[in-house]
């Protein structure tokens, strides 16, 4: 197995990239402050939040070999959990006549993550029975179900989305810079968590099942249950990125979970390099910066990005990181 090389040069270079990525992220507010360009703080806050969602998707895509075309739905579930609870905290009333609202982070955030994880568990329960094309389609179908559910839920704004009064307590009065640091800490912790999971026995089973499903079964490993656990964990982390997104924009909208968003997340993971954990951050940064740079030349930036991305997939499948790392851990 390829993991033997993790003791060699690849692991070392990987660690260098990891440190570099976070060193750059630490430098952003300092440089932006010095240059008087607060815009970059907002931009990189968004990049980190997208990166967090991409990392959770990489757990499925790069390590588990599960091509989920509905991952943005779980981001949306996390964001809506925050939005709906904040709505009831501001306006009174109860969700389903049962649950009162709250805008306290230590209540809302764990609830949102749990709801996201539970949604992923249910979706995974059904869709993981299938593989290949059917799996792609059934995750897409579930994501569309969740999408339309929120589009047609008029109480919470429907198509127009839901505006929040403020961020959750106790970070309601955070400046953008303070919020940036908070997101950075969250991202670092989540990255370390995913890295630990990948390196654990659990991660080994997941990767083994990706490489040879039948052999893992023959050994006696309940592959389905491992995949379901990974799917649930990825959904919970995606929901957490949704929590941060809702707090960042104080606005939630069904547009967050359209299937095109799910496809964009896959694009980010692939551009950053599948099966590299922090590749998700790099992919999100490359995507957002390309959007910004190309968008400066023309509002029709996607006409350049589309073909460019096709070329990346056709000829540099392992992502930009592979140029630095030599080869991906998952080969």
């Amino acid at each position: 197995m390829r993991t033997l090389t993790s003791r060699g040069g690849v692991a070392w270079r990987r660690r260098v990239v990891f440190v570099l990525v976070f060193a750059l992220l630490i430098a952003v507010p300092i440089v932006a402050g010095a240059l008087g360009q607060p815009f970059y703080i907002r931009l990189f806050t968004r990049i980190m939040i997208l990166g967090l969602a991409a990392i959770s998707l990489d757990l499925l895509l790069g390590y588990g070999g599960m091509v989920s075309l509905g991952h943005a739905a779980f981001v949306g579930v996390g964001a809506y959990s925050v939005g709906i609870l904040a709505y009831h905290a501001d306006n009174g009333g109860r969700l389903f006549g049962l649950f009162g609202g709250s805008d306290a982070a230590w209540i809302v955030w764990p609830v949102a993550v749990a709801v996201g994880g539970f949604a992923a568990f249910v979706v995974g329960l059904v869709s993981l029975r299938t593989r290949g094309f059917s799996f792609i389609m059934i995750t897409l179908a579930f994501a569309q179900m969740i999408y339309y559910f929120f589009v047609s839920w008029q109480t919470y704004g429907g198509d127009d989305g839901l505006q929040m009064m403020s961020r959750n307590r106790p970070i309601a009065d955070f400046t953008n810079v303070q919020f940036y640091w908070l997101v950075l800490v969250c991202l670092l912790l989540a990255t370390l968590l995913v890295d630990r999971v990948i390196g654990s026995r659990f991660g080994m089973v997941l990767r083994g099942a990706r490489q040879n499903d039948r052999r893992m079964r023959a050994i006696g490993v309940p592959v389905y249950r491992y995949r379901l656990a990974a799917f649930t964990l990825a959904g919970a982390i995606a929901a957490f990125s949704g929590v941060l997104l809702a707090n960042s924009e104080t606005f939630v909208s069904p547009a967050t979970m359209s299937w095109l968003r799910s496809a964009e997340l896959i694009v980010m993971v692939v551009m950053g390099g599948m099966g590299t954990v922090h590749g998700g951050i790099i992919g999100a940064a490359v995507y957002s910066l390309l959007e910004l740079i190309l968008g400066n030349y023309t509002e029709h930036w996607q006409i350049i990005f589309g073909p460019f991305f096709i070329l990346v997939v056709l000829f540099a499948r392992r992502g930009f990181l592979s140029l630095v790392l030599g080869e991906s851990r998952e080969g």
């Binding site: 895509l61 990005f305 991305f309």
Partner: peptide
């Protein structure tokens, strides 16, 4: 996965 990605690129284009 490659097919999904490339044809998604075509949609954008």
């Amino acid at each position: 996965l490659d097919q999904v990605l490339c044809t998604f690129g075509v949609i954008l284009f």
